[in-house]
Design a protein around this nucleic acid. Structure first.
Length: 813
DNA sequence: GTTCGAGTCGTACC
DNA sequence: ACGGGTACGACTCGAAC
């Protein structure tokens, strides 16, 4: 029979010793379908140069005789073929070794240690990756599938699979169809204890399209969406039933890999219930290791937190990746305020709030899912790994997967993943010199122009062909020379890495253009995905875990970036402009008396001379900007500046205002001071404002919540060599039985106690402690440092401002 | 006991 | 272990006085 089908979830199983893929997806009529399919399993034995055909033939014969016997199955080589391939852009002869089971690839590879075999590759790719490459059944694309209807045969457990239809695949044809809209259920749980499985699960909420539900067992409610269950066990069973009834393609949570799903699993176990959410009635499985991952057979479990952290975090303003902040940034909507309490301490009114709070979390999760679904589907289609993996992959692995799925076009054999020793070696190579940062001269400037290179590092990799496969052992005709510790050379002939990256950058440009003409969430996501891939390509080559790691390419990229930006700065100065700052790929300079048109002409002129696909762009014109002195030393601080554009929009970089480890008061004060100075061009309003704040502190009129300092605990308490205030507080919290986890923001303030003691940590207090705040500390260690260097530009001595007032105050007594 | 420079740590920029 | 280097600045630590 023939169906239109979109693959969603990929799995594999063994049947009679062979590997099969089991793909769950939907038809265009919304039916849930399972496909059973298989593909050739093989790896490559790359031969040494110059072997005679006869020799090669005998090697193939030898390989074909290999058999390995294991505990559960015997495996053998099925056949061999000799192919002309490329490996790291070099032409090679390679034996394609077909085997019975991919899990035995390593064992068979170990039998091929012949001296004529130079390298063995392609045995460390996952079966599903191999399957997608071989059969070209790419996730979240539409296909017309010819297949044989599977009835009662129990192959791969399909007999117990909750789907409408099972097919054994015969033919696959890609087709065009409208965007797929999956069925999605968002969920969230409330518990009495934070530690997984320790306390009861009190509430479970579910939100889908036209569906909302809160399951409760401790308390009933008149709210229509609240359903009372007998006990925790009953609630868990109802949860399972609702999921099964709704039949989602995707079950989405926020931090659910690390909390909700393992908690559900633990409580199910405690209550003697099987959490059989899988389409095959299996329970969720969790990968071991530092980051737990929860998988449900047939349904994609997505932890939105992980996708946002891996793909988006560097582009977000949020200071933490909590659901509250992330939802607020993406959706403009916050969580309902709620103080966590043990359920036994709630009165009736509070319970009603609790239901609402719990439901709202699922609602936010659902909306967040809707918001970033276009990005997830685009990443999946571009990178071509299953959605489950895409939603959890780091950017380095997205880049690598993109490469792997596109190697065939270059007839390339995949490089192997580095093993433990290799990673150690790479890490020992140490750092290389990175970006160039221009030393600014402190001051307030008017009429500033700001240029930046578009995808600078990516465009350098493309323009100079910097990659592992193009790195030469010695100079060649036309090769690119880069001066590092030693000189390194890259081939003139374009390698696949630069080719693919060029395509990525090209597509980014194309879709960005299409988007501006015809805005849609999809086009935006598509252009964005290409942009993120392009930006991650540089980091990938310098990443010790990368298959195509190349420290020379990474260091070379940085070196050429330094060279190009310095050259451009010189060009701008030669045209009579004064450059005041630059960092990595950006340059700001004073427009002076010249018109905007003249600046744009200069841009054009520079662009006409840039190498390869490199491009300089106008970031904007700013009417005013400020650069300040370093706190230690008397020269300009790098990575700290503030600008105001012609619409009075302010852009602040590096200042305490944007640092979460400063108290709110200091940040707000600095922000105001910068704002007043940039708007007015003088310090009058700023000074007045500062005086007001100083008085407020001295008179103890400041709310304690504005004085809280938040610092992240980055590792286990015992591992700290230097015990800073936040570590002291974390220790205390642990002693008091409060939850302390790595990654948590530790909150404290500095109190007016033990003034003789010199260490700040001895005066650090937790919120709720009844000590008064330390006026001196907040004046001299928070407010003053945050504004000192800014007002110094106007020769204002802030110290006198602080102390002068203090004396006046003393005089009043 | 105080002083000061080195080292640790967290967070930002690009 | 799960992109890279550059930079700032607070705070602690410990040697030197």
């Amino acid at each position: 029979m023939k169906i239109n089908f979109i693959p969603i979830d990929y799995n594999y199983f063994d049947f009679q010793g062979r590997n099969y893929a089991r793909i769950v997806g939907r038809t265009d009529k919304g039916k849930r379908v399972c496909l059973i399919d298989t593909c050739d399993v093989y790896f490559w034995a790359i031969l040494k140069d110059g072997l005679k055909d006869k020799k090669i033939e005998s090697i193939c014969k030898k390989i074909e005789r290999i058999k390995v016997s294991g505990k559960t199955r015997d495996s053998r080589v099925l056949k061999t073929e000799v192919h002309e391939k490329n490996f790291l852009s070099k032409k090679v002869k390679a034996v394609k070794v077909f085997i019975t089971n991919y899990k035995d690839a390593h064992a068979i590879v170990n039998e091929i240690g012949f001296k004529e075999v130079e390298k063995r590759r392609g045995y460390d790719l996952g079966f599903i990756t191999k399957y997608i490459i071989e059969r070209k059944l790419k996730p979240l694309n539409w296909y017309s599938i010819d297949g044989e209807l599977l009835g009662n045969e129990d192959i791969g457990g399909i007999a117990n699979l909750d789907v409408d239809l099972c097919l054994r695949v015969e033919n696959i044809n890609e087709i065009e169809k409208e965007e797929f809209v999956p069925k999605v259920l968002a969920y969230d749980i409330e518990t009495d204890e934070f530690e997984i499985g320790k306390g009861n699960i009190v509430l479970i909420s579910l939100v889908g399209k036209n569906f909302k539900k809160v399951l409760s067992w401790k308390k009933d409610s008149k709210k229509p969406y609240v359903e009372k269950c007998k006990d925790e066990a009953d609630m868990l069973e109802k949860f399972i039933n609702y999921v099964k009834e709704y039949g989602p393609d995707i079950l989405a949570g926020y931090f659910s890999d690390g909390f909700d799903l393992p908690y559900l699993r633990a409580r199910a176990e405690y209550n003697g219930i099987k959490l059989n959410l899988g389409l095959d009635n299996s329970q969720p499985t969790f990968t071991r290791g530092n980051t737990r991952t929860g998988k449900i057979n047939g349904i994609i479990h997505i932890d939105l937190f992980r996708f946002i952290r891996n793909v988006y975090s560097q582009y977000l303003q949020s200071e933490t990746l909590s659901l509250n902040e992330v939802a607020s940034e993406f959706l403009g909507e916050k969580k309902i305020e709620w103080e966590h309490n043990h359920s036994s301490k709630l009165d009736n009114a509070k319970w009603e709030d609790y239901f609402e709070y719990n439901l709202h979390d699922s609602l936010l999760t659902y909306r967040l899912y809707e918001k970033i679904w276009p990005d997830m589907i685009e990443f999946t289609k571009i990178v071509q790994e299953p959605l489950f993996d895409i939603s959890r992959s780091t950017m380095a692995s997205q880049v690598e997967d993109y490469l792997i799925h596109n190697l065939e076009r270059f007839n390339e054999i995949a490089e192997k993943r580095p093993i433990y020793d290799e990673i150690g070696r790479r890490r020992a190579e140490g750092k290389y010199e990175g970006a160039y940062v221009f030393q600014p001269i402190p001051g307030l400037y008017e009429d500033i122009a700001f240029f930046d290179f578009t995808s600078m590092y990516g465009s350098i990799i493309v323009s100079f062909n910097l990659s592992r496969s193009t790195l030469l052992e010695k100079k060649e005709k036309g090769s690119v020379e880069v001066e590092l510790d030693k000189k390194v050379y890259f081939s003139k002939k374009k390698g696949f890495f630069a080719e693919m990256l060029e395509e990525i950058i090209e597509k980014r440009k194309q879709y960005k253009k299409e988007y501006t003409k015809n805005p849609s969430g999809l086009l935006k996501a598509r252009s964005n995905a290409f942009k993120l891939l392009a930006n991650a390509a540089y980091g990938y080559q310098g990443f010790f875990g990368a298959r195509y790691y190349c420290i020379e390419a990474a260091a070379g990229t940085a070196a050429l970036a330094r060279k190009e930006i310095k050259k451009t700065i010189e060009n701008i100065e030669n045209e009579g402009y004064k450059v005041i700052y630059g960092d990595t790929d950006s340059i700001s300079f004073l427009r002076g008396k010249k018109s905007k048109k003249q600046v744009l002409d200069l841009l054009k002129k520079i662009n006409s001379k840039l190498p390869g696909i490199m491009e300089l762009d106008l970031e904007g014109f700013f009417k005013r900007g400020i650069w300040v002195t370093k706190r230690t030393g008397d020269f300009g601080a790098k990575k700290k500046y503030a600008l105001i554009d012609e619409d009075n929009k302010i852009k602040i970089r590096g200042f305490e205002t944007v640092r979460r480890d400063w108290c709110k008061l200091a940040r707000d004060t600095q922000n105001k001071v910068l704002e007043f100075i940039l708007e007015d061009g003088n310090d009058k309003r700023a000074k007045k404002y500062l005086e007001k704040i100083i008085n407020k502190i001295k008179n103890r009129e400041v709310d304690l919540k504005d004085l809280i300092i938040k610092t992240q605990l980055k590792k286990p308490i015992e591992e700290y060599k230097s015990i800073s205030p936040h570590v002291t507080i974390a220790k205390r919290m642990k002693e008091e039985g409060l939850p302390v986890n790595i990654g948590m923001l530790i909150e404290y303030y500095i109190a007016n106690i033990d003034k003789k003691r010199s260490l700040v940590r001895e005066r650090a207090k937790m919120i709720g402690d009844n000590d008064k705040y330390d006026v001196d500390y907040y004046l001299n260690k928070q407010i003053l440092p945050s504004v000192e260097n800014i007002l110094e530009v106007f020769d204002v001595n802030t110290k006198e401002l602080v102390e002068g007032k203090k004396q006046m105050k003393l005089g009043e007594f």
